[in-house]
Design a protein around this nucleic acid. Sequence first.
RNA 1: GCCCACGUAGCUCAGUCGGUAGAGCAUUUGCAUGGUAAGCAAAAGGUCACCAGUUCAAUUCUGGUCGUGGGCUCCA
Length: 639
Amino acid sequence: MSNSITVTLPDASTLQVADGESLYEIIGRISPRLQKDALAAAVDGVPVDLSCAVHNDAPLRVITFDSPEGKSIFWHSASHLMAQAVKRLYPDAKFAIGPSIESGFYYDIDMSATVSPENLARIEEMMRTIVDEDLAVRREEMKRKDAIAMFTKAGEIYKVEMLEEMGDDTVSIYRQGGFLDLCRGPHVMSTSRIRNFKLLSIAGAYWRGDEKRTMLQRIYGTAFPEKKQLEQHLKFLEEARNRDHRKLGRELDLFSFSNEVGAGLPLWHPNGAVLRYIIEKFSTDEHLKRGYKLFSIPHIAKAELYRTSGHLDFYSENMYAPIRIDGQDYYLKPMNCPSQIKIFTSSIKSYRDLPFRGFEMGTVYRYERSGVLHGLTRVRGFTQDDAHIFCSEDQIEDEIKDVLDFTLFMLKTFGFTERSIYLSTRPEGSVGSDRNWELATSALKNTLESGGIAYTVDPGEGVFYGPKIDIKIKDAIGREWQCSTIQVDFNLPERFDVQYIGSDGRKHRPIMIHRALLGSLERFIGILIEHYSGKFPVWLAPVQLILINVSDDEAGPADELRLRMLELGFRPEIDRRDESMGYRVRDAIARKIPFIGVIGKKEVAEGTISVRKLGESKSVSMKIEDLIDMIRGEVENRH
RNA sequence: GCCCACGUAGCUCAGUCGGUAGAGCAUUUGCAUGGUAAGCAAAAGGUCACCAGUUCAAUUCUGGUCGUGGGCUCCA
């Protein structure tokens, strides 16, 4: 029995252990601390439970919560813990799937009772009881057909369905106390390992994500080894709530929605509209600098246009019902490309005209199912910084490279420096020849690779007319958002028979590149609000400086300064209300205005102003000229 | 669209086990002329989302519609 076995640790050191010694014991010999932190271990690269014994020489890696693998195991175990609690409280509960997700876990459950927020507390209570019971989590392997029989008997129809689709002969189940679940594992050793958890929300979810199948109740939760980590995570969620653009949009008076105007149709208030204008102007100027030509098109077009473009065939579920005008059907444009193409084709183009870059702040209307609407990030009418580049095949890579550089410049300007890049390939139900898809996809790939840009392939996520590069940005609290998209299209030029005269005097077909850098402005601004937490940099702030007069005597001079700054192109405001200074300062801070300028007797006499920066509690007295220079500097540097 | 929850003043929220409602902040007015995070007082403000039904009586109960939130599915 006491055959000695050698395990090799990641640092290449080795450890002699007895045959049959459990991983838990082995890790205890490395360090008691590690033993305490260990959730599972990888033997020969395969993750297994700590209760497993080692019988052969093998490399050993301890899995703790610090690794993504460890988190996943921990959260998965937490989902079992929750399921066990639910089963105790609701014996008729049938379990579907309960995986770990990005920062926690969920379990999809089918049961007669509906879970309410109050019930979550009851379930948490029961989870605590089970934790205190310190139930060992045990793995058992059995024949698949035996498992089917067992779960059928238990009424676990979803588990049975999953088992029936599995190819393996043998399956594993995990048992903790009276609860058992079909699971690949591994899991933590005991329910007592999961002490810090929180159930967060309840939602509906279709069995297998199929809207034709049963709607299950999904309970989301999260858990951590340390109490402090849980608290930190809950604080993060709180922070995200405080940054919510819907909340800040109301508080900062940026935008609103009206029941009477319609769902998903944002109304921009003066503060929001000016922010939007600044972004539009900045974007338009940058496009002109890079040789783009401006386009502008109407919001509706005839059915014929969208029949030619293929939108009526491939995109109609996102389009609104036609408008009947003089016996003809017109559609609200769901995309800008078809009409923009008509601008390109309005005259004969030569190869000398290529690449032809047409840009527009183009508003589109898309039908979104009511349940998906969300603040500014998911609306039914929105404006994109949309451009279409017509170029020859051998210009594609250069153009894409330019677009990528341009995109990264734009994102950086708005404070987004971290991003990840995705290459989406041909989806089901797409149009176009294999050759063109291949050509377009490799053009995107080559550009990324020759630029040394790391990317991830998203198989089948392209648009119906071509592959695309999507860029996801990370905001100030680490959440990812998708804005930018670059799409190569051989299809529309063909459909519209777009041509140019080459240097050989013959007709050629250009390629189109569709691209939006900020994407939907509505969405982008929503993200910006959350990214900056409403504290916009000076160049974007709807109000850059608020002037506060100490007494009525200074109202005149303060207002003169306001008018002067307006004329200089700044966005000043004056608060001359009959309120105490403390009150008005407090109000200005709540409005997150970057600068507060106080003018009293002393300032008027000296030609100065007392300036307080947002976030600081001290004010600085400075010459008015210096204040203007300072603000100008921040605007020019886009700070 | 689907599941669950929700819709009371501009905002945040009480309340009515069926008898047409209240607070704080915001607003307006008056007083206070105030030196950097809420000066004092008064007034005004609501078809209790909308439409039906039940009832002597509906903001409250029932149904529908619209909208919001968390998700699913879809996507910028």
